[in-house]
Amino acid sequence: MGTVTLGVSIAVPEPYGSLLQERRAAFGDPAAHGIPTHVTLLPPTGIDAGLLPAVEAHLASVAASVQPFPMRLAGTGTFRPLSPVVFVKVVEGASACAWLQKRVRDASGPLVRELQFPYHPHVTVAHGITEEGMDRAYEELSTYAAEWSCESFALYEQGADGVWRKLCDYAFGGGAAGEVPPQGLPHDAPALH
């Protein structure tokens, strides 16, 4: 069956997603139109295509275990000089994203993998472009802000053309009524109801 490259992320909703994607393109990032605006939960990961049903079942289970939570973006940050990235910061919902990405990569599921860098939820607005373009992105979006209720994440597949295409959305909230939340969740992580 071969392998496929998958990613799991929280989409930045409209009108914010298109605006940030257009800005990313305007800063000179040629990948902007092939990557929907998002917060990564699982970076590009190659798996055997035969595992796709198990991946889908695992992600449905993870999504069912959480409730919607507030997400807020504000200001910019950068990973330079370690990595040529400028991003919009996740200032509310970051702990929930960190909790979710651990569940997505859990050792009991089909998406186990080590991360190259410690997990840091963010929305990339410039990657691998000129220093001038990176500086421009950092400065021009420094006052950017957006907020919404995060109600799902999605599974994406990267095509041979480098474009990421959504395979499935996974809505939050399938937990049973009266279920006790897992212990040790960060204070702004999603709670079960």
Rank of each mutant, 00 (worst) to 15 (best):
M71G: 04
T45L: 14
T143V: 10
A145C: 06
M71Y: 06
E147G: 11
I129Y: 08
G28K: 01
R105C: 14
L52P: 00
D29S: 05
R103N: 02
L52N: 00
R105G: 07
E92H: 06
W148C: 11
C97H: 12
G34W: 07
A145M: 04
F69W: 09
H58W: 15
Q21I: 03
H120C: 11
V125K: 04
Y119I: 02
A60I: 00
E132Y: 06
V86F: 09
H127C: 09
M71E: 04
K102G: 09
H120G: 10
T130I: 09
V85W: 02
T76V: 06
P68L: 12
P118L: 04
P36G: 11
A49G: 15
A49C: 06
T76R: 08
A98Y: 01
R136G: 03
V55A: 03
G109T: 03
E132T: 09
G46Q: 11
S108G: 12
A25F: 06
S95Q: 14
A60G: 13
R23M: 15
P118G: 08
R72Y: 08
Y138Q: 15
A74T: 12
H38Q: 08
S61E: 15
V86P: 10
A63K: 00
P110A: 09
H33I: 00
P30R: 07
G109I: 02
A25R: 12
T124S: 15
L115A: 04
A60C: 03
S61D: 13
H33K: 04
E56N: 02
A49S: 15
V112A: 14
Y138I: 00
A96G: 14
V90C: 14
L141H: 06
P30E: 09
K102R: 14
P110E: 09
V86A: 12
I129D: 05
E139N: 14
